[in-house]
Design a protein around this nucleic acid. Structure first.
Length: 218
DNA sequence: AAGGAAACCAACCGCGGCGGA
DNA sequence: CTCCGCCGCGGTTGGTTTCCT
């Protein structure tokens, strides 16, 4: 008896999501919604458990997610709400539009908790999160919340996609995207994006993927 | 330049709550 | 009323990246 662990079934994939899995999930949800997470991976043709799909969507792929650094205002809200609510991350997240409970939880454990505990002491560290956030806008592209304008992005027309998604050969696509392909220039190299740009690149990409990538037949 | 330590964060696990049968 | 299945939540892990010595 007992609950069957969600990924215990044979053949279900675990670990980091690939770009093509993301696309399949996004396309499926865009077309069909996510009324039933349990059934979704099967219908979408993903070798993932529903839980994993839900987590990926909720924490990373949702279009309304705000990426990038937390502002001081957001941090203050988190601290305040945590004082009021404790570890009720989903409630806290609901008060911060665009932020996920997972993200808030991570920020809390990695920065805010530490900072609060150090508050009574001076901060000798050269590299504190406060320093990062205060300087991020101007100095750190990785953490910048600034937008990468679409004109900076590579043109993603049909030929781009036909190159990236050549038929049903997803592994080749993966190789191309990850730069493992020895037969062509890796995408990451050819477009020379830093991390923040990549993020926007993928957001742009996802928003346009609908028109280009066919859903698996089911 | 290299190796170790610390930081970061995506993803997994397991439990509790809720709703339908 | 009870059981069962699903969803959502919070805690935790582990791989990767960055920093420090």
């Amino acid at each position: 008896m007992g609950r069957v662990p969600c990924c215990e079934k044979m053949g279900l994939k675990k670990g980091p999501w690939t770009a093509e899995e993301d696309l399949v999930l996004i396309n499926f949800i865009n077309h069909n919604g996510h009324a039933n997470w349990r059934a979704l991976p099967k219908l979408a043709g993903l070798l993932r458990c529903g839980k994993s799909c839900r987590l990926r969507w909720m924490n990373y792929l949702r279009p309304d997610i705000k990426r990038g650094n937390f502002t001081h205002e957001e941090e203050a809200i988190i601290i305040k709400l945590h004082q009021e609510l404790g570890n009720r991350w989903s409630v806290i997240a609901s008060r911060l539009p665009g932020r996920t409970d997972n993200e808030i939880k991570n920020i809390w454990h990695t920065h805010l908790k530490k900072r609060l505990s150090q508050r009574s002491r001076p901060e000798p560290e050269a590299r504190t999160y406060a320093n990062e956030t205060s300087s991020s806008e101007e100095s750190s592209p990785m953490h910048s919340s600034g937008e990468v304008s679409s004109e900076n992005l590579p043109e993603m027309d049909e030929s781009f996609w036909s190159e990236v998604f050549s038929g049903d050969d997803w592994s080749a696509t993966s190789d191309l995207l990850s730069g493992n392909s020895d037969s062509s220039v890796p995408l990451s190299e050819s477009v020379c994006l830093d991390e923040a740009e990549s993020m926007d690149f993928w957001h742009n990409l996802f928003s346009r993927a609908d028109d280009i990538v066919e859903l698996p037949q089911f």
